[in-house]
Amino acid sequence: MRLPLAAPFEPHPEQSSRHQIRKALRRRRRSLSRHQQRQAASALAQRLMASPALYRARHIGIYLANDGEIDPAPYVTAARQRGVQFYLPVLHRFRDGHMEFAPYNETTPLQPNRFGIPEPVFNGGHGRPTWALDAVLMPLVGFDLEGGRLGMGGGFYDRTFEFVRQTPRLAPKLIGLAHEIQRVVRLPIEPWDIPLDGIVTDQCRYRV
């Protein structure tokens, strides 16, 4: 029997700015226990492995979970058995506020970037252009069913994938990953926000 979906988060009218919603949702996901996080990661992996959007994908951008983010690591382990190659975002060497994607496997050496987030030691040698990725699985702070995405506020994904507005045929599928408890009734959207093609949670797959 399928469990009912978690109720979406509905901000109080007086606390509905992006900053306030972000703060509340980060607190929500950090409240999950380690056991709940492991269960969520396992359920997420099953949904991603069964996703038609990823069935033919062979080059996928991924992230390392922190701050209570849902963990894609079990999916990465399973998908590697299908021959999928994964890439982690690193801060761009020349374009401030942008990212590039470096190959990632279990032996890839990591180092903290200026935000303290681990990323591959990368000199640009064997990276993959963003347009050549089949899909990018990106972390969410919050999402709604219109494809709205609330990130950490740095705008790195929005700037990196801004090109999809002009050349959508070259765009990878942009799929957000989150706990179901991060779903919001309606997010305030900014003009620069890059919309998602879909969202996958521990409880459901949403196609935008």
Rank of each mutant, 00 (worst) to 15 (best):
R186A: 14
Y87Q: 11
K23F: 06
D202T: 08
S16G: 01
R128Q: 14
T201P: 04
G61L: 04
H98V: 00
H59A: 15
G68W: 07
P168M: 05
F122R: 01
L25T: 04
A73Q: 15
R128T: 13
A79Y: 02
D134F: 09
R93C: 07
G151W: 04
A135P: 02
E180H: 09
R205L: 03
Q81T: 14
L88V: 07
L196W: 05
G154E: 12
P172R: 05
L187T: 06
M1T: 12
Y75F: 15
M152P: 04
Q81A: 15
G154L: 09
F161I: 08
R114L: 10
V200K: 00
P139G: 14
G142H: 10
A53T: 03
Y55L: 14
A41Y: 01
R22L: 10
T77E: 15
G68T: 09
F101D: 00
P109W: 01
L25R: 07
A65C: 13
T167S: 11
P74G: 12
P13F: 05
T130W: 02
P4Q: 06
P74C: 13
P72L: 09
P8A: 13
D197F: 04
L54D: 01
V84G: 10
L44V: 11
M138D: 04
M152E: 09
E100S: 07
V164K: 08
F161H: 06
P118A: 04
T130D: 08
Y157D: 02
P4C: 05
Q85E: 15
D202Y: 01
P112I: 00
F101Y: 07
Q182H: 12
A135G: 08
L170S: 10
R93Q: 14
V200F: 02
D158F: 01
N66D: 12
F122L: 04
R30Q: 15
R128G: 07
I175V: 09
P168F: 06
I70R: 02
I62H: 04
G116W: 03
Q203K: 06
I194C: 06
